[in-house]
Design a protein around this nucleic acid. Structure first.
Lengths: 220, 220
DNA sequence: CTGTATCCATGGCGATACTG
DNA sequence: CAGTATCGCCATGGATACAG
């Protein structure tokens, strides 16, 4: 491929293909099923994902388990040792490439990430429903509901019908930057880029309950 | 590009293009001039190198200094902070992808790397000339001379005419693996994959004088 | 020496549809 | 649910020649 003996070039032969690092990020975050992986890289075609998984398997980074139905994909030891590298890339990207284009904003991806990372154990007993209204995207993709019940998190893009405990009024852009912790909840609230409509205790508690993305925690 | 807010994807938009990581490796090893960079990535076309340098400049990773003649390229702070990531990729590649195809072996690249890394200060006073004969490649690219004089290292692919202090008989493959420290000098000598013809003291000293590649040292 | 311009082929990849 | 098949485009990047 590169025609070099340097281990960096050998590593990049495996890792520098388009999407590969993002698939590995998904696996490092715990996804093992084909369709779970797809949710993490929705713009990647399924055939390409399939191809990448095979390439990674041949390279000894991924192991496929169970053929046919209920196939799952797991990182080998070699794959797991990419964890610190992916983390370092995330920290570097946070630090040096903080600007997001409109193309980088995707509510499905954002709430999919929130859903899997959210520390449900911090939430109040019983059921809590939070409605999000994002002003900078079409209504069709701008209304989301977060339902947290007994340590379980659900996200809907339709009204689940529960009584809403809090409404978050903001933009997709602001919510994304807050989630990444490019700006804090406090600052976004102060600037008026984000409003929480709820009883005082919920309004106070919500930022802490939602928190920040897993990757944001790395940088701190 | 990827349409994701995740900093890993933002980082990879810059870093996952073909050759980019290898150019950064060269810069991290100290190259600043266009043609020095080329020597480190000889299979990369100059127009592509030019393009990559501009992309990296736009991304804030590289800074161009002096236009026209005597241009040089330098890593910005962001670029320097990629150092640990490139190192980690090298360590990972050494550990998990130790196999080299014939395509990965390149005597020009090997001796260019030896030349710049070799710890000349360990060598004897005066001039030392070492001749290499690589049996597994055409004679035309299989004979090399290493001349170390007062802390200066020269490599020739033609006989410089000096008296030869040592002859190293081996293959390109073995010498590459030794340089990478996939196998030690001792083991290669023991297996007979590499022979040093020289007076006893030189024969004993040479492995230590040449040593191993900079990247090999990372893994230890 | 330090690049740039141009050309062209290839195959990577996106889109879509379809199957066990 | 878990992929595979097919198709077609266009951009990547390799090669070469040339310019300041």
């Amino acid at each position: 491929m590169y025609g070099q003996f340097c281990p960096v070039s050998k590593a990049m032969e495996v890792l520098d293909e388009r999407w590969t690092m993002l698939v590995l990020r998904e696996m490092l975050l715990g996804s093992t099923r084909f369709n779970d992986l797809r949710r993490g890289v929705p713009r990647m075609s399924p055939s390409l994902l399939s191809k990448r998984l095979r390439t990674l398997e041949r390279a000894g980074v991924v192991r496929r388990e169970g053929s046919g139905v209920r196939t799952s994909y797991h990182l080998t030891e070699a794959g797991k040792e990419l964890g610190p590298i992916v983390d370092a890339l995330a920290v570097w990207g946070m630090r040096w490439l903080p600007d997001l284009g409109d193309e980088d904003l995707d509510p499905h991806l954002l709430f999919w990430d929130i859903r899997r990372t959210l520390p449900a154990e911090n939430w109040p007993q019983g059921r809590t429903t939070v409605a999000f209204e994002l002003a900078d995207v079409p209504v069709k993709v701008g209304r989301w509901w977060l339902v947290v019940t007994r340590g379980e998190v659900d996200v809907c893009d339709y009204d689940p019908g529960f009584e809403v405990d809090a409404r978050v009024l903001t933009t997709l852009r602001t919510l994304t930057h807050v989630w990444r912790s490019d700006i804090s909840w406090e600052k976004a609230l102060l600037k008026g880029d984000l409003t929480i409509e709820a009883p005082r205790d919920v309004r106070r508690g919500l930022p802490g309950w939602i928190g920040y993305s897993a990757i944001a925690e790395l940088a701190s």
